[in-house]
Design a protein around this nucleic acid. Sequence first.
DNA 1: TTGGAAAGTCAACAAGGCTGACTTAAAACC
DNA 2: GGTTTTAAGTCAGCCTTGTTGACTTTCCAA
Lengths: 169, 169
Amino acid sequence: MDHSQTGTSHSDSLLFLTDEQLRKGIEAMFFAYRGFTADPDRILEGMDYGRAHHRALHFIHRSPGTTVNNLLAILGVTKQSLNRVLRSLIEDGLVESRVGRADKRERHLHLTPKGAELERSLSDAQRARMRAAFRAAGPGAVQGFRHVLEAMMDESARKQYLSLKENSP
Amino acid sequence: MDHSQTGTSHSDSLLFLTDEQLRKGIEAMFFAYRGFTADPDRILEGMDYGRAHHRALHFIHRSPGTTVNNLLAILGVTKQSLNRVLRSLIEDGLVESRVGRADKRERHLHLTPKGAELERSLSDAQRARMRAAFRAAGPGAVQGFRHVLEAMMDESARKQYLSLKENSP
DNA sequence: TTGGAAAGTCAACAAGGCTGACTTAAAACC
DNA sequence: GGTTTTAAGTCAGCCTTGTTGACTTTCCAA
């Protein structure tokens, strides 16, 4: 489980990973995630919304007509937690909840024009940062980035990630 | 700012990044970060500690003798927020706070054996996941992963990240 | 000797998680 | 047709972790 020779980091031939390298990876995740959320957070502060609203808007935009249960599974939060967020978005006219045609118990969620507008301003900011990072790192790095992140996910999250439509890696 | 031809993703020659590729990157960050924190969170649940305590333990372990102000800057939270966490760790005997020798206003933070033990169990879990992800993705991917994350950080965070000691990428 | 930095503390508040209990409507089952 | 299950929504209360603002103590340094 440990190599007991921490510190020296030279050529890592496939299986030799020092604790130092792993720790750097861990810290990279920590600092990068802060940057990842910084721009949308800045836009949202002052509004009545937060990161949770952003996530809901993102996945509704991305899978229009998704049901509440679906969204619950993707976001990995409780019904009560999501409901609080969803209720305010619906009341404020950013999200529309339509009774299901086939199954009238279900509610299908869509962004209104107003909701789409906020979603776009949030995702524009986030995409701009991602684009800058991808360009700075180069095309090869993008593949590596995606591969490592994918391997880091829980099995169930990976399935959800891969099954989100238009997936052509 | 936008290419207006979303969807098709074939060879991306250095500067051509579709919104689709960027969105996949964004979602990869979201799902992967959940996996990244899942194991330590599982260990901590049931104890009186949470993710904030984990972060404090991590950076104290990594930079023994660091001052409170230093830690504040790295974690990016307020003094009051950190103090609450630090107080419980000190009271429970996981962290020792030593008055500075040169400057007696400063407190230098160290892990006690008990604190080091918890830190190790948390970081063992997190490293195991990182190691598995790195192995699954291969050595080239690890470089790409680090490069993209580094480029995604805010300028100030990147400086902190790079200046944390024993940095030999 | 005085100004300011480092640390610590109290109080109050907000976001966003959680559990538990319960309702309503509609589908599915037998 | 009656029962059970499922999807959604709600109320109440709790926890963690972040925030501001105000204030104290200590002590270095100009």
